[in-house]
Simulated assay, not measured.
Amino acid sequence: MTSSSGLISAAGKTVIGAVEGDAIPQNFIPQLVALYQAGAFPFDKLVKTYPFEQIEQAIADTGSGKAVKAVLTMP
């Protein structure tokens, strides 16, 4: 698993990122693309983007189930 911690730390919060977990990208990505093309993996409906300034809202929405995968964007 590839991860980085402590990328951003402010007000006692730490952002931790993970890339593909324990998956083997050469196998996993083509499988996901095939599922998406078959209509069996609507990832675009699972992702909700938030400007970084709305990090608290992203956390709340993920906790409540309003967002499945919150993605923070930065300028």
Rank of each mutant, 00 (worst) to 15 (best):
P30S: 09
Q31N: 11
S4A: 08
G65V: 05
G12N: 10
I59C: 01
S64K: 05
S3L: 04
I16W: 04
D44N: 09
P75W: 11
K48Q: 15
K45W: 04
E20N: 04
T62W: 12
V68I: 08
I29F: 09
A34H: 02
Q54M: 08
A38L: 06
G39E: 08
T14M: 06
Q54R: 06
K13Q: 13
L7I: 08
M1N: 01
P30N: 02
T2C: 04
P42W: 07
V71E: 14
I59V: 02
L72C: 08
I24P: 15
K45A: 03
A38C: 03
Y36G: 12
G65M: 10
Y36I: 12
A10H: 07
G65E: 04
E20Y: 07
S3C: 04
L35D: 12
V15E: 00
F52N: 07
S64G: 06
P30D: 10
K48V: 14
T49V: 09
I29S: 07
L7D: 05
F43G: 12
E53V: 14
A23Q: 07
P75L: 03
G63A: 06
E56N: 12
A40T: 01
T73H: 07
V33E: 14
A70I: 04
I24C: 06
K69A: 13
Q54K: 03
P42K: 11
T73Y: 01
S9Y: 05
S4G: 04
F43I: 04
A23M: 10
P30T: 01
Y50G: 02
V68W: 00
E20S: 14
K13G: 06
E20C: 06
T2N: 08
P42A: 10
I16M: 13
D61Q: 11
F28H: 11
P30G: 04
Q31F: 10
V19A: 10
P51K: 00
F28S: 03
F43N: 09
L32D: 15
M1T: 06
A18V: 13
Y36H: 11
I16T: 13
Q31M: 15
F28N: 05
G12Y: 10
L46N: 07
Q57F: 06
S3E: 02
A40D: 04
I16A: 01
L46I: 12
D61E: 15
E56R: 01
T49Q: 03
I8M: 07
A38F: 03
V47T: 07
I8H: 09
D22L: 08
V15C: 02
G21I: 04
Y50V: 00
G63M: 06
A70Q: 01
E20A: 03
